[in-house]
Design a protein around this nucleic acid. Structure first.
Lengths: 166, 166
DNA sequence: TAACATTGGTTTCAAATGTAACCACCGCTG
DNA sequence: CAGCGGTGGTTACATTTGAAACCAATGTTA
């Protein structure tokens, strides 16, 4: 079994691609595994999908938001929000009322029941996150945040300006 | 603007959840951004979906694989492989032949054309990866690998044994 | 205030994805 | 070699997801 030693700073461009070492691939597998596991946990206990849970997570912290404001906060799109909202309404986890000032706008809030669920999920969520973090060393934990931030910035540029083409 | 100082080692369990700080959420957003950007690049130039490209990436390195072996290598499921394979066949990017020893089994390889495409994509893929990596410091780059590995192990446990329940 | 562009949100339709059923073949057992 | 469980792979169906069209209310301009 060969162990990679520190590669030279200059990055090597191979003729081959090792999928299992390819960052975008690994991110995708990791993120799917994590999301699916959590989705199952939420789904089983509270009949919540991930998008629905995200909406609740935001409404748990901010009151009187509109769907559009949820879009800003969640990086989800209009349609996903609309669907999550309507399913949450069906479960009575949130409430919807008209904005008197603007009759297109709908003001969303957690219902009492929703707030209760929210209060029960938050510790779970923290537990999952801690459990993930627990597998890292202190050093790694400290850097993870910054790493993700930086990658995110770059990825955002990609999706806005298109890839580093031609 | 408040800057977080080193948090105490003991992890704080809040009553609130800051979605934008929540690791599973951030992973998901990051991975989606990256995948979408790349999918678009591949799609536009080579009419390849991500699953199809993954199949090609594996076949570029290993010859005479069966669909089942692709499943092992890619963390994709049977059906996804089957669909990717049939679309790649349609494009003549891969070839399929019967295994004489076992008539259920089909032996897959890149076609000449497929190998050509592969050779053109590999440098692109490396370029995208490098571009991502370039946003990190040397320190961060060095640790990223280990971090993902560790998180992956934990996530895998989750999906196998179910979440750290009750 | 009539016309038009904009915004908030939903609906519709097509494409992507996952699950389960399925078919054909293999290999073992009696 | 009949019967049966297991494997390789595809098909069928239900669900999720995304893009674009859409409806309604607002704001803006002439």
């Amino acid at each position: 079994m060969t162990i990679d030693q520190k590669a030279p700073t200059t990055v090597v461009e191979n003729d081959d691609l090792r999928l299992e070492k390819f960052l975008p691939y690994r991110l995708s597998v990791l993120s799917n595994r994590v999301s699916n596991a959590i989705a199952q946990a939420y789904g089983a206990r509270f009949h919540l999908t991930i998008p629905a849970w995200r909406v609740m997570a935001i409404l748990g912290r901010f009151r009187d938001l509109s769907a559009a404001e949820l879009v800003e906060q969640t990086a989800m799109d209009k349609v996903a929000i609309s669907r999550a909202v309507s399913s949450l309404l069906k479960n009575d986890y949130i409430t919807r009322s008209e904005d008197p000032g603007d009759r297109r706008r709908q003001v969303l809030n957690l219902s009492d029941q929703g707030r209760e669920i929210y209060a029960r999920i938050v510790p779970l969520a923290h537990r999952y996150e801690n459990d993930l973090m627990a597998s890292l060393s202190g050093d790694e934990r400290e850097q993870l945040d910054g790493i993700i931030d930086k990658l995110m910035v770059r990825a955002k540029e990609w999706s806005e300006r298109g890839l580093i083409d031609e």
